[in-house]
Amino acid sequence: MYTEKVMDHFANPRNVGEIENADGVGEVGNAKCGDIMKIYLKIDNDVVSDVKFKTFGCGAAIATSSMATELIKGKSISEVEKLTNKAVVEALGGLPAVKVHCSVLAEEAVKAALADYYTKIGRDTSSLNTCDGCCGACGSHDHGDH
């Protein structure tokens, strides 16, 4: 069962779309696994001035993407670096255990977009600990409280 917050973000997703000439674009997941998230960032003076997403995936995948964009919009990139999947889950009022991987994917998508931006401006990306794999294919993630 999904919480009301999840249903709200699924039914009325925030920040859906693309940003032309985005400063950072990150895409994670793959179609085989059933989830792909793509995040576009616009960054001005180290602040996320705009963010958009596109997601192929289940209700939780869409809701976590939407919530992740809401959590980082208007935030400084140092704050965005600290985004965790747990924060996304908490903001949604919880997720069913089998859907927690969606929040991990949302975190990864944001980090991948940030890494893309860092690469473009020649900044070190090691602090981001990104991955572009299929969720579940690697066991290194903290999947939150199951």
Binding site: V16, E27, A31, I36, M37, K38, K54, T55, F56, I62
Partner: peptide, 8 residues
Amino acid sequence: RSMSPLYE
């Protein structure tokens, strides 16, 4: 589809 990166 309008929010699917695959369709994009």
